[in-house]
């Protein structure tokens, strides 16, 4: 409900922005803001309809409050105030943005190895020394695969620190 409401506020602001776009000097052409206004009107109308439907269905049927016995069940409850999925999704997004920012200064080799290690390490279901070792090996292996596929195979100009851009034959 909160997400749809936020979407509606954003759409309303953008609709106002669309009304500020200059009118066309070409005869007959409805202007650059015409089609975006239609799209945003669709979002506004359907968003409001979705909110009303949700509100009505919640009023008609009020389910009993869930009693969570474990963390996973609590996480699946969409009405819970803090959702662990949301926290983790934001962390992954922040980490990915950091990876893209560090790709150039650190180079593909170091940045990708670090990024993969951070993603793999907490996901391996074993004691930490073993998990760290496997995550490190996995991170280096993935970096090599990525390097072979994208740099050598697809000739993508990714920033490199010490691996060669091309492998020349003898």
């Amino acid at each position: 409900m909160v997400s749809v409401f936020a979407m509606l506020v954003g759409a309303a602001y953008l609709y106002w922005e669309a009304t500020q776009l200059p009118a066309s000097i070409l005869k007959g052409y409805p202007g650059d803001g015409f089609f975006p206004r239609i799209a945003l009107a669709v979002i506004l109308v359907c968003g409001i309809a979705t909110l009303i439907r949700e509100a009505v269905s919640k009023q008609l049927v009020t389910p009993p409050a869930p009693e969570h016995t474990d963390i996973d069940a609590a996480d699946d409850d969409k009405d819970a105030p803090i959702n662990l999925d949301a926290v983790e999704a934001f962390l992954i997004v922040a980490l990915s943005l950091l990876y893209m920012l560090l790709l150039k200064p650190l180079g593909l080799e170091i940045a990708t190895s670090l990024f993969m290690f951070v993603l793999l390490f907490p996901r391996l279901p074993m004691r930490w020394p073993k998990a760290a070792l496997i995550a490190a090996l996995g991170a280096v292996a993935t970096t090599l695969v990525v390097y072979s596929a994208f740099v050598l195979g697809l000739k993508v100009a990714l920033p490199l620190k010490f691996l060669p851009q091309y492998l020349s034959g003898y």
Binding site: A18, F35, P36, I38, L40, A41
Partner: peptide, 19 residues
């Protein structure tokens, strides 16, 4: 509607800049 709106971002067919 969201997809339609995303498609309007940038330069329009008639050269205007949007969003």
């Amino acid at each position: 509607g969201l997809g339609l709106f995303l498609s309007t971002i940038g330069t329009s067919d008639f050269g205007g800049m949007r969003f």
